[in-house]
Structures are given as C-alpha cells and as structure tokens.
Amino acid sequence: MLTYTLRRLLYMVITLWIIVSLTFFLMKLLPGDPFGEAITKLPPESMQILIKQYGLDRPVWEQYLTYMGHVLQGDLGVSYQYPTRSVVNVIQTAFPASFELGIESLIIALIVGLFLGIVAALKHNKAGDYTASIVALIGISIPSFVIGPLLSYYIGVKLRLLPAGLWLGPEYRILPALALSLGTIAILTRMMRASMLEVMNQDFIKTAKSKGLSRKTIVGKHMIRNAILPVVTILGPIAVNVLTGTLVVEKIFSVPGLGNQFATSVLSNDYTLITGLTLFYAGVLVVVMFLTDIAYNLIDPRIRLGKGK
C-alpha cells in the first residue's frame, strides 16, 4: 500500500511537470502579442522596457528555468492583462465561486444520480427503470452548454422563478448548479444501475432473502453498500466533467469564477494567466484522481493495487 501510494505520488509529480512544460512551450509558440493593441501605440523604447521587465528578451530555456523555479515556490507570475494582479491572486479571488458551484452540482448529482440508479435497478424493466434511463440518456445527449441557456431563458427570463444569471445570493446558485449537474447525474445513474443489477444477482442476496430479512435491510445494507463501491472509481472522471463544465456554465450564467476568467484570458492572449490556470486545473484534477485511487483502495479490502496479478 505504501509503495503503491509513493509510486502514484511520483507519477503525479511527473504528470504535473509535463503539464507545466507543455503549457509553457505551447504558449511560446502562440501567435499574437501578450500586450494586445497597446503595443502599436507605444514608442519602441517603452516597448523595450516592457519586454525586459517581463523577461521576454532572454533565451527561451532561461525563461523556462526561471518559470519552473517560480512555480516551485508557488508563484505563477503576473497577469499580462491586469498588471497589478498576480495569477495566484486571480485564482484566490475567482476560485471560491467555481469551487462552490462545483461542490453544489456534485451534491445534487450524487443525490439524484444515485437515487435514480437505485430506483432503475429495483424496478428493472418497469416504468421506473425506463424513466431513469430516459433521464440518463437526456443527460448524456444534451450538453450543459445547451441546457444552460435553456434553463436561464425559460426559468430565469420567461417564468421569472429564479435569477437568470450573476452570483449574488443563494437563489443565484440553483440554476448554474442544476445545469452543471445534469451530465454527472446521467453518468452516475447508468453506473449505479449497472452496478446494482450485478449485485442483485449475487448469492449473498439470495441468502439474505432466505434468512427472511426485510426488504429495507436487504436493499440498504446488502445491495447499496456493495453496489456503491465501483461508483467511487468514476469520481475522478466526474471531477473532470464538472470542472470543464464550469468553463461554459460560468460563461452562460456570468458567474465570476475561474472558468469565466479562463475563457477571457484565452481570448486576450494572457500567457501567464492561461499557463497558471491550466496548471492549477490540472493540479486539482491530478490530485482528485490520486485521492480517488487511494480511497478506493482503502474502502474495498478485496482490491490490492500494485501487487501484480
């Protein structure tokens, strides 16, 4: 277990290093200019000063080493767009909204998705199963960037039930979280349904039934507990799903989060901000995947990872 954890930790570091390097060099290949329109209006001397100030006159490998050194110290540089703000500062101000949105959508998805999956399996091939499967299919085939505008328009603008955008009070959270959670609900429903169906055919369920246990106990203690295990493994991909989802959902609902920030920095060639945010996102995802793996290993004693076949 310890060797496995250490090995995974090493991979995690390598992965992050590759992502930092990849983003850094890709950014160097980018067309366009980080100073935007202003550069044409500046006298050449001032431009020289600016370029020197940001270290853009030195050779690429030197810039790379400096950048890596700074990253290791937790310094992701200064945004080109907002020269007074560091990338870390941008992340600190924008991340809480994204994080909250992500967690809320995850909670909604877990409650609804697991519930639908359990109902679908218990009512296998009956109306309940079909309803749950249809919800899951809709969730898979209609992405959040289509559901988002629809929710915002019909519930926010036409019916005026909830605010159509912005991020002010608790009622502003509902629509974005809902739009973001639909895809996750679909994945969870399908996964939970398949997993429940598999558990239901096992011998220990027959034993439990023949012992005369109540249906509540069988479903609650024997089926769900066992069926929920494989679901833990997909928490990693789900985190990816939620995170990329925030990129578009935040844009649709004007949530002042990191996703929105990312989209604007892409359009304005803000090198350091893009690199920093990609690194930050990748870091979050890699850590989540790592934790999922370890958690799965801890929860299920039957699985002994890293011990060969």
């Binding site: 991979y11 995690m12 992965t15 590759i18 992502i19 990849l22 983003t23 890709l26 950014m27 290949l29 980018l30 067309p31 990816v240 995170l243 990329t244 990129l247 892409v266 893009i274 990609t278 996102y281 990748a282 995802l285 890699v286 995947m289």
Partner: peptide, 15 residues
C-alpha cells in the same frame, strides 16, 4: 491519461 484533454485541446487550438 491524467492530463485533462480539454485543457490541452484549448492550448493546442490556440497554437
């Protein structure tokens, strides 16, 4: 596998 592909796709598209 652990590199989030949409992020890389965004970077590649820019280049």
């Amino acid at each position: 596998y652990s590199i989030p592909y949409l992020l890389i796709a965004i970077l590649l598209m820019m280049v």
